[in-house]
Simulated assay, not measured.
Amino acid sequence: MDTSFYKSAMSEEIRDEGRAEGRAEGLLLLLGVRGIGLTDADRAKIAACADPQLLHAWLQRAATASSAEEVFRAS
């Protein structure tokens, strides 16, 4: 069985898209549960982000942030 596809750049890109999508959904859920309000622009920013590492950073900040501004602040 040829498994080269699973090691390819295309396969990694697909996995990154899945990671980003999952992290975006988790971020929106966490912010909602914590009662942190988001603007439509904030939601669009999260939905449009394809960088799993950036979404991970936002998700970490969302755990303790008291506002959306704290989540999105530059590191």
Rank of each mutant, 00 (worst) to 15 (best):
G37E: 08
A47Q: 12
R73W: 07
A47D: 10
L59K: 14
I36Y: 06
D51K: 12
A50D: 15
A47M: 09
R43L: 03
L59G: 09
K45A: 02
A48D: 04
R43W: 01
L59C: 10
T64K: 10
H56M: 14
K45P: 00
Q53T: 13
R61L: 10
D42H: 03
A65K: 02
A57F: 13
S67Y: 06
A47H: 12
G37D: 08
L55A: 12
A48E: 05
W58E: 10
E70Y: 06
A62H: 12
L38M: 09
D51T: 06
S67A: 03
V71P: 04
T39I: 04
T64W: 06
H56G: 12
L54C: 09
A63K: 15
T39V: 04
S66R: 10
S66L: 09
K45Y: 01
F72T: 05
P52D: 13
A50C: 13
A48R: 07
D40E: 06
A57V: 14
L55K: 11
R43E: 03
L55H: 12
P52E: 13
A48H: 01
C49G: 14
W58G: 08
A47P: 08
P52A: 13
V71G: 09
W58R: 12
R61K: 14
A50V: 14
A44T: 00
A65C: 06
E70W: 09
C49P: 07
R61V: 07
G37S: 11
A63Y: 14
P52M: 11
E70A: 09
G37W: 03
F72Y: 07
A68Q: 05
Q60R: 14
A50H: 12
V71Q: 04
A47N: 13
A57R: 15
G35Y: 08
V71Y: 11
T64Y: 11
L59I: 06
E69M: 00
T64F: 07
A41M: 04
D40G: 00
A62K: 12
A41H: 03
F72M: 02
A63G: 15
A50W: 10
G37V: 00
H56K: 15
F72G: 01
A44W: 00
T64H: 08
G35E: 08
W58Y: 15
E70P: 08
L38A: 07
A62V: 09
A65F: 02
C49D: 14
I36D: 07
A63N: 14
A63I: 15
T39Q: 05
D40L: 05
S67R: 01
A48Y: 02
A65L: 02
V71N: 09
D51I: 10
S67I: 00
L54R: 15
L54F: 12
A68R: 06
P52L: 11
P52N: 13
T64L: 07
D51W: 09
A41L: 02
S67N: 02
R61W: 08
D51F: 11
C49M: 13
H56T: 14
A44I: 01
H56D: 13
